[in-house]
Amino acid sequence: MIAKTGLTVRLGLVVAASIVAAFVPDLLPNLFYVHIANLTLLSGIFALSLWIIYSVGQLSFGHAAFAGLGAYMSALLAMRLEVPPAIALIIAALATAGMAALLGAVILRLRGVYFVLVTFLFGQMFTLLVLNWADLTNGANGLISIPAIVIAGVSFGPRPMFFYLVFGVFLAVLLFTWGLKRSTFGRAFDSIHQNIDLAESCGIDTARYQVIAFAIGSGIAGLGGAMMAHYIRFVSPDTFTFHNSVAFITMLVVGGRSLFWGAMIGAAVITPLPELLRDFEGLQHIIYGAILILVLRLLPGGLVSLPSVLRRQGGGQ
């Protein structure tokens, strides 16, 4: 039973995963694969943080905008004010969470498709703002030569080095999400997800908890965006668009929404896809859409539900 899994078991899993990860950059045939692994872990951070918002029953179509917000803030702090990137990205994450809390306090009273529409609009506004506030953001040209993350004299600019960093952060986010799900907050979140009126009648302040979940999820997205900016060393209005928000949602659906690690699996499946589909440039979004529809039709629980579906099918024969 997961609820009874003690601290030791979790620590064991973390150690095992870390040992495996330590060898990954050396085992991969070339740097391109390391790059894909890095992007996949970043996607994992985005998808997990989106799951936190989903766990209170809200679907954000502006998740990429919060990632972009974190990316621009951290990059600008590092470039204009010469804040060390490692500190800049933490400030950016907290600021993103703060902005999400302010926005969430206003828009989280909307439910279902109305919330989706407003988050979509927020994403569009973010793109327009970044495009037009050229004095600050350099407009459509974007920000170039963003400094790499340096911690205690060690640069995490090179791809294998960044892998270790992003793996550590991903693991921290994963463990945090796991803990959050099991916590009193997780119980409140899931109560809201299942039956918001009854949750309120249980004395759970649903408005407050929804804002908390939205702020935490968006803040982590901001952190992921900031890390990405310091890794790619470049950010433009095209880096985080509506299409990225859709991709994050696709990861959640394909992986499976009911369990937080479904997001992880979705990220691992969807992120390398554009590289495999290089030959079908332009068809990518159509393929995303087709995958989304197929999964919803054939496997509504996502890939994490595959074992139980197969078991049921096997038992029926």
Binding site: R182, S183, T184, F185, G186, D190, A199, C202, G203
Partner: peptide, 27 residues
């Protein structure tokens, strides 16, 4: 009710505000 939770979990949620469980402790 909370349809996807067990009967006992439903009642535990009803007792949410009385619980002495803490956020940090439960994480």
């Amino acid at each position: 009710v909370f349809p996807d939770s067990t009967v006992l979990e439903n009642v535990v949620r009803g007792a949410f505000t009385r619980s002495q469980d803490s956020l940090a402790g439960s994480i």
